[in-house]
Amino acid sequence: MSAETVTASKKGIDLRVVMGMLRRLLPFAGLALLIVLYLISTNFRPTSLHIQTFIDQVATMAIMSTGAVFIFSLGSFDISLGVGAAVSVCLGIMAYNAGAGVVGMFLVCLVVGMAIGFVNSVLSAVFRMPVFVMTIAMMSVLTATLQILLGGKTDLRVTTTMVEPIKALDNPYLRLGFVLVFFLICLVLFNFTKMGRRNKVLGGNPKVAEQTGISIAKQTILTFLISGSAVGIAAFLLIARSRAVTANTGVSLGMDVMMAIVFGGMPLAGGAYSKISAGIIGSFSMVLLSQILTMQGITTGWSQVYKAVLFLAVVFVASFSYREKMLSRAEMF
């Protein structure tokens, strides 16, 4: 029995314990509530279109969010994920239009996503730049890169005469397959390998991690490569879906991923309580919420107010106790 529980049983209910439980249960309870509301919105008869649309919308976000959990578990966040996906989409379409075929396009998306992740990781690990600040700068660099790749055009599309094989990829079962496989790989990596455990230790306290022999640079590079692979796979699915890239592709996706991870119950500071399920749970919740609000005819402005209020509520609960539980890094060393 932990000291905290002993305190709770001896001196009555400790509010922090209650809030801690609430924090752990809230994402699942929230998702369950949203499923009920979704069913009500569809008169308890979701059609195949409902299910297909849900899968189509959730797949990209779920994969990117799951990959981003690795970075979040370090206590950081890569804000350039969305535009990174857009650059991958752009180069993937270029490769496909140049005759690389579907497999070639997939590999280009994957390699570009991982390459962007690698650059980010080197800047973070080798030059010790704060991830969030560094990725803000990278976002500008990648946006400029995308604009240059677009060459002053509004968008870049899959060549009309070559579009049929891409249309064939626009399949919910394929998306679901990608989500399941990627999630299972990440689940194993995060929960059952040294790599995942080291991430949690590093997120909990970098100094402690370093003193226990964990190579921060190596761990950071691995983390960003996993996240980059998620970006690449998401880019491939984005091409299958819209067959085009514009200067603003992925802008909303990047922010949605951040919100999804928090909705999914990820501790704001990362560390030992990080959960790989946060990406999936949060993405499902975000997409359900968005669809419910549209189906209910909530106008755009109010829809955003609802989302913002819910987000703040989740952040509040998620942040309730983590500061008090964290060791003071400044005082330790």
Partner: peptide, 17 residues
């Protein structure tokens, strides 16, 4: 905006609505 994926999502949600 000019985010094609967001526009596609919008169309899908309007269909569901």
């Amino acid at each position: 905006g000019t985010d094609s994926d967001a526009a596609v999502r919008g169309v899908e949600e309007l269909k569901l609505a």
